[in-house]
Design a protein around this nucleic acid. Structure first.
Lengths: 246, 246
DNA sequence: GGCAAACCGATTCTGTAGAATTACCGGAAG
DNA sequence: CTTCCGGTAATTCTACAGAATCGGTTTGCC
């Protein structure tokens, strides 16, 4: 195949939807899309250079993440993201993650946890820079994924897996803000929280594992709530669409 | 409303997807679609007499309910429904419903609860027949919906609202089995559980409300697990599709 | 004249149809 | 055993028709 790829390489066949989902999510959290704003399929279609089909499908998935509302025959509107709503998301996440870790204590692979703990310690000891943030994100992913997988509840794992897109986009946006501020303090804080979790897992202590996870969630909540202060999603009060009841 | 609902509601515009979702869900729970079976878009399309667009969209929604798995570029396969997986669903439901009622205790409209309690008592006192089953389903819907709405957590409410399709389809299939057996005992049992919940809500006692809800969930779980005995979704062991790792 | 209900048209969603593209799987050939 | 190839089906695109909603306008009535 001697021909070089053309100017445009949408190499995401079968992943278009996911791409759109993540892009829209990021846009919302960055404040580019404001609450109450209507998401017109056609605009999004040529914004992302794809056809209606994946856009429509992405909107359905976004509705599953509760960031947009789907009004029958009226399309999608962006839901409000406020400090309150972030707290609500975190509350749900908390009960799910705690349930997951409660089940994972007995089943999780200790060796894997020990490896992760070592890496977390290394990270905490290493210099704080943008590269460290990327490593922190990666370790966070791995730890939580390991817990989901070991929860012993496939439905719960699938549910958390689905919501993961939401959580991680949010988390990454939060880190973006920290990066912009050259603020790396959070790396150490998170490492401490993660180590409390790994310690409890290694000790096989369900009660303290749940406690550690609760602390981790509470900390993340405080952290995430900050994002909303940067969101100017309130000014368009009149743009709110009145929606028919149910 | 003197007219009885016609056999087919032709005016689905904007609701095709929902229709397909519910139909496939019912099929799975009735055992017409077996675990591991591939859901080919085109077959479903002419099975339901719709085009492939709403089918695909329905599959995405079904994936949100964790009853099918979506393999990129490979389509959808039915996930296993076993006694174990039902227990898993119920476990997740339990933590969510309990969280909802914990928040609802302080906010729920007492008058509404009192009305529901009266209706529940009337139902328990009325003769057990198919019509009573329909009323029981209706009251169950209303009570849980009221709790969701009063939970004070919109995200949680939206989440429960989304999963509702799953829960209710399952519940209805379960009732179908009871109806076929002329078994109405469960109506009284459920009424008792519901009254424990309404009493706790009226008393404003969060602790006992959560306890009552826990009992209700546990009872529902035992009840639902029975459905799996009627599902012959195990035989196709070899049909399992190996899926690429994320 | 003023108010309410009915009407209309623009916009956009929803669903259909068919074709082009791409990916995955399994078998055949080297 | 590896590599190539072809069939099947998913994914996406294009184009279009039907339907629902909204906002404004017109009509009819008091």
């Amino acid at each position: 195949m001697p021909d070089c790829p053309p100017v445009e390489a949408p190499f995401d066949h079968g992943l278009r939807r996911q791409t759109v989902v993540r892009a829209v999510l990021t846009d919302i959290f960055h404040g580019n899309l404001r609450a109450g704003q209507r998401l017109v399929t056609e605009s999004l279609a040529n914004r992302f250079n794809v056809s209606h089909t994946p856009i429509r499908e992405a909107l359905i998935e976004l509705r599953g993440l509760c960031v947009v509302e789907l009004l029958p025959n009226r399309g999608a509107v962006v839901r409000k993201i406020t400090a309150q709503s972030v707290r609500e998301v975190c509350q749900v996440r908390k009960v799910l993650e705690c349930e997951a870790i409660r089940g994972a204590v007995r089943k999780i692979d200790r060796k894997r946890v020990a490896t992760l703990a070592t890496e977390i310690r290394e990270l905490a000891a290493s210099p704080a820079n943008p590269e460290a943030v990327a490593r922190a994100q990666n370790l966070d992913n791995q730890l939580h994924d390991a817990i989901y997988a070991a929860s012993g509840n496939e439905f719960l794992a699938a549910e958390l897996d689905r919501l993961r897109t939401l959580f991680r986009t949010f988390r990454d946006v939060t880190w973006d803000l920290e990066l912009a501020r050259r603020e790396y303090h959070r790396i150490a804080i998170e490492a401490t929280e993660h180590l409390a979790i790994t310690d409890a897992l290694l000790a096989g202590d369900a009660r303290s594992a749940v406690a550690a996870m609760t602390i981790h969630m509470r900390s993340g909540q405080m952290y995430w709530v900050q994002v909303t202060t940067n969101l100017k999603n309130l000014p368009s009060e009149k743009e709110t669409i009145k929606h028919s009841p149910q």
